[in-house]
Amino acid sequence: MKIDVVKLDAGKAGSVELNADIFGIAEIRADLLQRCVKWQLSRRQAGTHKTKERSEIARTKKKMYKQKGTGGARHGARSAPIFVGGGVAHGPRVRSHATDLPKKVRALALRHALSAKAGGQQLIVLDEARLDAPKTRELADRFAKLGLTNALIIDGETLDENFARAARNLPRIDVLPAQGLNVYDVLRRDTLVLTRAALDKINERLAPQEAA
Rank of each mutant, 00 (worst) to 15 (best):
V84L: 12
A197G: 02
R74A: 14
E17S: 10
G72R: 12
L123M: 08
R137Y: 02
G119M: 08
R43H: 10
D127H: 15
K63N: 05
W39C: 07
G119I: 07
G120L: 12
S42R: 11
F163D: 06
W39I: 03
N150A: 03
I28R: 08
R29V: 10
G14T: 04
D200L: 13
V183E: 06
A98P: 02
R43S: 13
F83R: 02
G87K: 04
K12H: 10
Q67S: 05
G71Q: 08
I57S: 11
G24H: 00
L8K: 12
R111K: 14
E17Q: 12
A207P: 00
R43K: 14
V16Y: 01
I153D: 11
L192N: 05
K201Q: 15
P92C: 07
A211I: 13
R74Q: 13
L139G: 02
R137W: 00
V6F: 01
I28C: 07
V16R: 00
S15V: 03
E53C: 07
V88Y: 03
Q121S: 14
Q67A: 08
A98Y: 00
R74W: 06
L33S: 05
R54L: 09
D160C: 11
T99A: 10
I153G: 08
R172K: 11
S115G: 01
P102T: 14
G71L: 03
D9L: 03
G24A: 07
G85A: 09
A109G: 11
Q67F: 10
V16G: 03
A98G: 04
F143H: 04
R35I: 00
R95L: 08
K52N: 11
R93F: 02
N169F: 03
K52D: 11
I28D: 10
L18S: 07
I82M: 12
D200V: 15
L108H: 02
Q121T: 10
A164H: 12
V105W: 00
A198N: 04
T195L: 09
R54G: 06
K52T: 02
A166L: 09
T99W: 03
K117Y: 07
T195G: 08
S42W: 00
K63V: 01
R93G: 06
L108Y: 00
S79R: 13
R168H: 08
R54D: 01
L18G: 09
M64P: 05
P92A: 07
L139N: 02
R59L: 15
A73K: 10
N19E: 15
K7C: 05
Q45H: 13
Q45W: 04
I124R: 07
E161T: 00
G119D: 09
G119H: 07
A211K: 12
T99G: 04
E128I: 01
A107R: 15
L8G: 02
E17I: 04
L192I: 07
A211S: 14
